[in-house]
Design a protein around this nucleic acid. Structure first.
Lengths: 255, 255
DNA sequence: CAATCTTTGTGCACGCGTTCACAAAGACAT
DNA sequence: ATGTCTTTGTGAACGCGTGCACAAAGATTG
């Protein structure tokens, strides 16, 4: 994936492994879809397939949260939605600021996924004075000068950086100094932050490079093997059970 | 991080661990910066600091590529840039198509990081007939009907999906059927693909939820500990050596 | 109430990734 | 040429995450 997960040395927060935390949003999404279809209960097998993971892994993940299932039946969808939401802290309101309203920043401001789960775009901030006052996604852009007061006045603890690489560290420092303790970084730079501040990064270029590596390897194997093994590649992988997150993970990883 | 890395069961491709592959782009970026400043050589310690990783990890990563360093001196910057680029397959041209030219798709099309490293936006594709012909980032948008011929004619093997979640699987199937074997997915859905196709996903919402989890935990600890431990949080973590990728994958992780 | 069947929760083993710590290698000075 | 100093490359130990396989728990049926 394109996102990288980045945080400290994986201090197992309250007994819940980092890898499990990274999968909870995946389960939550699948459960929400079931909930909208008014499905009352779901087995670990079904839910695992919907989330694209192994069923044993899913059960172990849920075991860290508690015993929320019923043997012989499965999990109560609504109850599980609530428990995971609570565990992830989505039952409360999280005001978020986006800094750097270029193409990407504007896209993020318009992204519906933000508002859907307790996240509220409290403000859009840009260094360009010409942008000030112009509404993006219905929210007027404010100048960087206001950054500190915006953070303080709205009690913002999560900041999104979508500036050019050169400005990212400076913006990061100001966000942290103003009280932000979690940062989602889209700028292609390594951010240096004080102890206690979480940084996760999303780097599109890195994701593409990783794909290119595998693509190159595939091309090399193909050439080496000739046409002999080509037909074997037609076998369909219908089981989506071996797809990773990394959150993969992914395109997002710990900074 | 916001990206997740998702691919098959980590079949150690040609002896290079998946975790190492995910870090190579990070090293490459740091090395490129050094190269532009005409720095001739760099030690594992310095480069590790620039890339935000542990120096032992960096040396082990490089050892998988070969012995490119000189003991007592360090690594030759230019040589290492070339070796990593070659390993990642960036010495060749990778035509890429972006499907779904909404806010995010347009932002991706304008993203400079794509063109910088061997990636070339071969086409922009959207299902909206009204978009057809309109230029985005200097490239005219083409209708979905043309998808198959575009893939074939340009020899595209990497596709980027930036459509709404509902259309993602269908688009994915068509891309794969047309010959695409690597997909970067920005739609919040689990994609099902045949064996041999790599999928990496970038999910902004998931990254935010992971941050919220840690944020909530921090708030809980703070409340529990009272003001006693508050001053300790002012200790600066200048060493960026313990920042993870994966990252965190990254926000990007294996699908 | 007993038997059967389904599905959870988890003990255990395995493998990957990280980190330490040091020997080997080479540069450099004398 | 010898010795010293720096830095790489890696062997080995450790810890986390994954997946298997099964016992325990509860539903359901007769």
């Amino acid at each position: 994936m394109a996102t990288g997960r980045t945080h400290r040395p994986a201090t197992r927060s309250r007994g819940i492994p980092e890898a499990t935390v990274a999968r909870l949003p995946l389960y939550l999404r699948a459960l929400t879809a079931l909930s909208e279809r008014s499905v009352p209960t779901v087995s670990s097998e079904e839910l695992a397939a919907a989330a694209g993971v192994n069923s044993a892994k899913l059960r172990k993940d849920f075991s860290y949260l508690g015993s929320y299932g019923t043997r012989g039946v499965g999990y109560d969808v609504e109850y599980l939605v609530y428990q995971i939401s609570r565990e992830l802290g989505l039952t409360q309101d999280w005001p978020v600021v986006i800094v750097g309203i270029g193409n990407l920043g504007a896209a993020l401001a318009n992204y519906g996924g933000f508002a859907s789960r307790g996240f509220r775009v409290a403000a859009l901030i840009d260094a360009d004075p010409a942008m000030a006052g112009k509404p993006v996604a219905g929210i007027p852009v404010q100048h960087t000068d206001e950054l500190e007061s915006i953070i303080t006045d709205n009690g913002v603890s999560i900041g999104v950086i979508a500036t050019p690489a050169g400005a990212a560290q400076q913006v990061c420092d100001r966000l942290v100094a103003a009280g932000v303790t979690s940062i989602l970084n889209f700028a292609p730079t390594v951010l240096s932050v004080p102890e206690g501040v979480d940084v996760r990064k999303v780097d599109l270029s890195i994701e593409l490079q990783i794909l290119a590596f595998h693509e190159q390897r595939k091309a090399g194997e193909e050439a080496a093997a000739g046409t002999a093994t080509a037909p074997a590649a037609t076998a369909r992988k219908d089981s989506a059970t071996d797809q990773g997150p990394d959150g993969d993970v992914p395109a997002v990883m710990p900074a």
